[in-house]
Design a protein around this nucleic acid. Structure first.
Length: 307
DNA sequence: AATTCGGGGTC
DNA sequence: GACCCAGAATT
């Protein structure tokens, strides 16, 4: 099983040059990559982009940055405003955590996004990936950035397999770290470039190998593009708690306030459940969960977004 | 290591 | 319809 340790320095440099040169030409012109984008703008983008495609983030990010240009602005907003602005990006707990992170930055970091990866990692909603990404993209600190795109590119190009393991392994992190260019500026650009390659060319389902700068170096291609050993199980959706929770949130977002006794009708009106009819246990479970998560408030016999 | 947590475009 | 997406937190 090929590993990075087996790549000669010359082979690694060839890898770097191919991807970086490709990035020079094909990088998308995204607003959070602009030279005048603030660290806060980068951080907001990284949170919004968690499990969410770029095209859906773009409009929400623009509105968000215009409304709350720095962490202190978001920290002062009401939860209702924040959840409304989050709109349909999904996983709305991210919005709550982003606001909590903003408050923490006001408290502990003078209202600014910290550059220290450990300080970033300590913020709500910021995991290993996001901490590394903000440090690298916003502050030029060459942390090893490993997201789903990087994992896929390295799994194919270096290890010669079709898809990465289900969960991020130490071996993957070790390989990604070993592959970081020594030069600081180059390393930061490498982080963005590999992600971009995974997003635009080395995609999960139909990779466009003909357009890939690594075609002649790719271990997966030279192995005949073998099928992945494990086909990842897709997430169920119809009938899940996630679907019902989302439908409840949509009903409250659209109406502002929903009588407790009218929740079922209001949610049905959003037409987000398809043919699914939740049973009483699921209604109870989901509503209690939303209240417990702080995504919903029950007051005067009605549900609304928290103040 | 496995689950939970949205939502919609795309194949 | 299944699949995938710049993951994090919890168990």
């Amino acid at each position: 099983m090929p590993e990075v340790a087996e790549l000669t320095p010359a082979a690694q440099d060839r890898l770097h040059t191919a991807v970086l040169d490709w990035f020079d030409v094909h990088a998308r012109d995204l607003p959070w990559r602009s030279a005048d984008c603030s660290p806060w703008g980068v951080m907001v983008s990284e949170i919004m982009l968690q499990q969410t495609p770029v095209v859906r983030v773009l409009p929400r990010w623009r509105d968000w940055m215009q409304r709350w240009p720095c962490p202190a602005d978001l920290a002062e907003a009401s939860t209702a405003e924040v959840l409304t602005a989050w709109d349909r990006l999904g996983y709305p707990r991210r919005a709550l955590r982003l606001q909590q992170a903003a408050a923490a930055m006001v408290d502990r970091h003078g209202g600014k996004v910290p550059a220290d990866p450990a300080a970033l990692r300590a913020l709500p909603g910021v995991g290993e990936y996001t901490a590394a990404a903000v440090a690298s993209f916003a502050f030029g600190i060459p942390e090893t950035v490993v997201d789903t795109n990087v994992r896929r590119v390295l799994t194919r190009a270096v290890r010669g397999q079709g898809l990465p393991p289900k969960t991020l392994t130490r071996a993957e992190m070790r390989d990604a770290h070993a592959l970081m260019p020594a030069d600081r500026t180059r390393a930061n650009r490498w982080n963005a470039a590999v992600m971009e390659l995974g997003a635009l060319v080395c995609t999960a389902r139909s990779p466009r190998c003909d357009d890939c700068p690594l075609l002649e170096q790719c271990a997966w291609v030279s192995a005949g593009r073998p099928e992945p050993e494990h086909t990842p199980r897709g997430q169920d959706w119809a009938g899940t708690d996630r679907q019902l929770r989302g439908a409840v949130m949509a009903a409250v977002r659209e109406a502002g306030r929903v009588e407790v006794g009218a929740v079922r009708q209001a949610v049905a009106g959003t037409r987000r459940l398809g043919t699914h009819v939740p049973d009483e246990a699921q209604w109870t479970r989901c509503l209690a969960g939303l209240l417990d998560d702080g995504l919903l408030l029950e007051r005067d016999g009605a549900y609304s977004f928290p103040d």
